[in-house]
């Protein structure tokens, strides 16, 4: 049965709000300095993306799985969901490649190069997605933003990212209230044209509120001394464990690149 679009939109908005509170994780990754984590995982993602040999990519996937397993049950469940979702999507995308890629034929019209390229794609996408999710799962967003400052991302950009995430929640709340109010007024199935109009006017109303909100925020920022240039406070101290982890990340990335790409 087809769900009504209001139901679906409400569920999406609700999921987004719930997801936001999900960075519940534990273990060594959680304690790691966010700068080390950000740079380290970026290196591993790059290594996985560059790998030309399936065994190396598989090894990196195993590393990601191990890290997820030691990051607490919440993170592990999130990674399992991710694997299922990514696997389904990339599997569907890669499936025709089994038959379409020219090369020596195996059974049922599958070609060897097809099999190899489909597997390579699947493992690669799962691996990079695992690493990327581990960053978000084990690091509170504000800490991640502060880490960005250390990689020479301009302060103004970091302030914009921080404010944008902040206002996603404000706007999600406004959107959810608006859709809920509409749902309360409409019972039963609505004709498509009306539903489209409702969705568009909901978005338009949200845009109006957004622009108005941006004006109010601008006032609030100016009243506290904002003059267009952002100033942020950076407070990180790298412990010995952080340095060791940085070394480990570097070694793993180097090894993966050496065997997967350069050799």
């Amino acid at each position: 049965m087809r769900r009504d679009f209001l139901e679906k939109t409400l569920r999406n908005l609700g999921d987004a709000l719930d997801e936001a509170g999900r960075a519940e994780s534990s273990g060594p990754l959680r304690r790691l300095d966010p700068r080390v984590k950000l740079a380290g995982f970026f290196g591993l993602i790059l290594a996985a993306a560059s790998s030309r040999h399936l065994p190396v990519t598989l090894g990196l996937w195993g590393l990601g799985a191990t890290l997820a397993a030691v990051s607490g049950p919440g993170a592990w469940r999130a990674i399992l969901r991710l694997w299922a979702g990514v696997g389904l999507l990339t599997g569907a995308v890669a499936l025709p490649a089994l038959f379409l890629t020219p090369g020596p034929a195996l059974d049922w019209g599958v070609t060897q190069t097809g099999l190899q390229s489909a597997l390579t794609l699947l493992v690669r996408v799962e691996t990079t997605a695992t690493f990327a999710s581990l960053i978000a799962l084990t690091t509170p967003w504000p800490a991640l933003l502060k880490a960005l400052r250390h990689f020479h991302v301009p302060a103004l950009a970091v302030v914009i990212f921080a404010m944008a995430t902040r206002f996603i929640f404000v706007l999600l709340g406004i959107a959810r209230d608006a859709f809920e109010a509409r749902r309360a007024r409409h019972v039963g199935h609505l004709p498509g044209k009306l539903r489209r109009q409702m969705a568009a006017s909901g978005a338009a109303m949200l845009l109006g509120k957004s622009i108005q909100l941006s004006g109010e925020v601008y006032d609030a920022m100016r009243a506290r001394g904002f003059r267009g240039e952002a100033v942020t406070l950076d407070e990180f101290r790298c412990s010995r464990a952080d340095w060791a982890a940085a070394g480990l990340f570097l070694a793993l990335t180097g090894a993966a690149l050496e065997w997967g790409c350069w050799r």
């Binding site: 908005l13 103004l156 302030v159 914009i160 990212f161 921080a162 404010m163 944008a164 995430t165 902040r166 206002f167 996603i168 404000v170 706007l171 999600l172 959107a175 978005a203 949200l206 845009l207 957004s210 622009i211 909100l213 941006s214 004006g215 925020v217 601008y218 920022m221 100016r222 904002f226 003059r227 267009g228 952002a230």
Partner: peptide, 17 residues
């Protein structure tokens, strides 16, 4: 100086949309 609030709120809008 209005750039920061305008861009961030509109980014949030696009995200929600």
């Amino acid at each position: 100086a209005r750039l920061a609030p305008l861009i961030s709120v509109c980014a949030a809008f696009s995200f929600v949309v």
